[in-house]
Design a protein around this nucleic acid. Structure first.
Lengths: 143, 143
DNA sequence: TCAATTTATTTGATATATCAATGTTTGACA
DNA sequence: TGTCAAACATTGATATATCAAATAAATTGA
């Protein structure tokens, strides 16, 4: 029994890392110079244009500091622009450039295919159960 | 259906991060200045004293470069010593110090408790299914 | 035996994670 | 209205991840 408790966290770690490496490699092979994390951030802005960096962090499950630095790189890559926020000067208005929009669309296709590949042969009810169990773990860790 | 495929990877990411943050916090509160990753590496050496860094990396699912740097820190913290390997001069003999052994033992207790807390209320058969599904994902990503 | 290949580790460069500290700006409220 | 706590973002320090390149030792094969 103890064995299983040990293995499950190992497997979780391995699964997420394997998927990320696979996904990143597919992107690289398709010729895109963007990381999954960077893509997630741009996508979050497109889906909710007035989002704050804090909210972006919650959505992508990232630390504020990480979000700031990912956005630094996205600005440098000219996928994003930083502007002053209209009503709250503590905040930053994040504008997705045309180049940014283009790449998000292209990458989206690769990501959808990646997910399909990764979940091939797995029953939807099983996926649902995995989701349920993982959420229970998340809940248990919020003491 | 597409929704679920999206959510499952998000949940995996969130679950592993939440667990790691929880585990690390428990260690900190217990007064130990060591990371989970560092602990994993020392434990791997104790379980298999003649292990190579490459094998350690495979076991803890880490890149060689990461293993080298984690070991750097463990040597600096005096939990490990590097020596010349007896038969293969490319390799490094890794010696766990007494301090290293002590901390692994203490941390072990905290980790076991963490796992128990994280898996509270989850049926072993469910854990087994999650493990099975995650392994299938790992397999699918090894194209 | 010598050259070519493979193996083990290290190092450099860049990206992300985490905690703590700092700097502004807002908003609440005495 | 002036003060103070909360909110938002950045920065610094350190740890880890990833890829590529470099180094050095071992192995293979002609």
């Amino acid at each position: 029994m103890e064995k299983l408790n040990e293995i499950i966290f190992y497997t979780m770690d391995k699964a997420i890392k394997t998927y990320r490496m696979f996904a990143q490699q597919q992107l690289r092979e398709a010729g895109y110079k963007i990381t999954i994390d960077q893509w997630l951030i741009i996508k979050g802005i497109l889906e909710n244009p007035d989002i704050s960096q804090l909210e972006l962090g919650e959505k992508a499950f990232k630390d504020n500091a990480s979000v700031t630095r990912i956005i630094d790189l996205l600005v440098k890559a000219e996928y994003l622009e930083r502007q002053f926020h209209d009503t709250d000067r503590r905040r930053v208005k994040l504008i997705v450039t045309q180049t940014g929009m283009d790449i998000v669309g292209h990458v989206q296709k690769v990501v959808l295919q990646n997910r399909k590949t990764a979940l091939d042969g797995i029953d939807p009810t099983e996926i649902e159960l995995v989701n349920k169990v993982l959420n229970k773990i998340i809940q248990n860790c919020h003491i």
